[in-house]
Design a protein around this nucleic acid. Sequence first.
DNA 1: AATATTGCCGGTAACGATACCGGAAACGTT
DNA 2: AACGTTTCCGGTATCGTTACCGGCAATATT
Lengths: 343, 343
Amino acid sequence: MHNKPPTIKDIAQRLHLSISTVSRALRNAGDINPETKKSILQLAEDLNYQPNRLALSLRQNQTNTIGVIVPNLDYVISTMVKGIDEAALEAGFTVIVCQSNESFGREVVNTRRMLNSLVDGFIISISSETKSNEHFKVLSEREIPFVVFDRVIPDLLASSVILDNEEGGFIATEHLIEQGYKKIAILAGPQTLGISNSRLEGYKKALKKHDIKYDDELVIYCDFNQEFAFYATEELLSSKKRPDAIFTISDRMAIGAMLAIKKKGLKMPEEIGLVGFNNEPSLALFSPSISSVEQPSFEIGKLAGKIFIEQFLNNDFSNHKEVILKPKLVIRESSVRMTRKGN
Amino acid sequence: MHNKPPTIKDIAQRLHLSISTVSRALRNAGDINPETKKSILQLAEDLNYQPNRLALSLRQNQTNTIGVIVPNLDYVISTMVKGIDEAALEAGFTVIVCQSNESFGREVVNTRRMLNSLVDGFIISISSETKSNEHFKVLSEREIPFVVFDRVIPDLLASSVILDNEEGGFIATEHLIEQGYKKIAILAGPQTLGISNSRLEGYKKALKKHDIKYDDELVIYCDFNQEFAFYATEELLSSKKRPDAIFTISDRMAIGAMLAIKKKGLKMPEEIGLVGFNNEPSLALFSPSISSVEQPSFEIGKLAGKIFIEQFLNNDFSNHKEVILKPKLVIRESSVRMTRKGN
DNA sequence: AATATTGCCGGTAACGATACCGGAAACGTT
DNA sequence: AACGTTTCCGGTATCGTTACCGGCAATATT
């Protein structure tokens, strides 16, 4: 039923040439008379010829497509994906994105699915539920190239592009200390996740540097989730060891914490300070506006894309690059009590 | 270099059978001895055989993939895409998403690109910049099936799934009227976009029903954009005809308006009411929380997916279905001045 | 017993493209 | 004149899969 798109065969028949000749002309290969070539290109243009990518991929065993596997598409990750997109576009690659929805099962299914000759390799950020690497080990065994970013996979050999999460935890905590907060709690993420632990490490490091005793009752592990953060904060605030500042390792959690703080009627930043992580745009709109650790998401994605493509084209995935980018603290009202509050 | 995945040929050789027989076994076709079939399936399982989708698609001229073209991936649209995803998954289809970033050029490029035998058809929501249909007319000419959703394409014949935007504008406006607001302004979107106009129509309809005179100085056309809304609201508030309520046709715009209102020092909802559109989750967190028109985004996406697949499988795209779903008003603090403000 | 019907299997062409090889004609070289 | 070189083109195999046809037994039908 479809009005089928033209193929090189159509062109060949119309010009009374062989498909080989047409193919050479369109590929800019040699062995061809300039005149012949010109007429072929002309006709191809007229017919609006586009090569069939399926046939090409099948023949060349290469799809020029990158599979991107992410746990979700929140603000940070979707920005990273845009970065990957840009790198891919520049190199003539296509990107297919699959959300695992933080589910291990879907991560496996999606990987398998894309593996059926649809992609040349993967760029991966694991789901928070993912504890095993088995399904990625398959990639290694079959020598399918991949690069990891954002959330890396422990014990898995591959190039990686990540944030210096420890540094992020450190600058946030040190900032709170410098603002005179004494009892700083941290809402850390799930213990299974590397980024959680790194940010927690940074927190510890800052405390140590400023001779503040580490108190594990001020450390709450909870899901990357506004609600959990809300309840965790409520509990913290009514405990004996009520903190005078909270550092949350995501902005969603910061918002949950802020709601709990407001409900309790505490003044921010006077009575309690707050710093989040990711610097989502809406943070500036809250009142008080919320300080946060910003990460160069777009760059992380773009770099991951570039590294993948570079290694793919050179067919060299044995040299593992490890890029670590630095975060930046964006200071807003929620954590500044030394100076007068701005407008 | 790749440890190449097994093919039916490998299976055939190992069992001393022909590829035809193996193919039949795996496809559950007839003409096969149960014993033979069993051994083939067993070996396929052991080798973790997965059919090569490229070859399949090339052979069958069908990819089981749907191209989804969207202007961006904001909250509403990404929810819709999740709906499409679910419908596709249930039917064994794969989804490829391309953001046009509200750019006409990228929309065209992406469409062309996916058209090169990568997708069976499209599910489309146009970019706000898109004025011409030319690149989609190509689809019609080549009889490539597509379904439109959310933002429809005027004068283009296809099934569609959309929100009753007029109704949305109507219930938001009527709500404000019932709350006693008299001079209600509207921040409408770009005039080129159908959904803007429909919501504006609803607004007019509500005014008319309640015998309020329509005043076009209270209608501001501006981009779907927080900043534009901010400046537009500032202007509105300092004009002679200062409104006592504002209806914005997106939540982003509502947030912009709210910032301008706060800056001006007006009390909400007492001195000025506000209703947004889309019901993004963060609205509940602002103070005051913001009322908004909710749309069944997930259902819209899922329906669009289902309709596409159904029509595709029946090979019937001549009967154009038109589904229109109803919005729902979510009332929060920003627009309620009759009763006492909640906690 | 001759024929028709099944059950089961293999061979081959095709989907659209590229890679490799071989060959005819035109030219240049001794 | 005989040979080697270019230039330009066509034929064929191939990627992994399915569709179609044909064929050979074994069984069923008359």
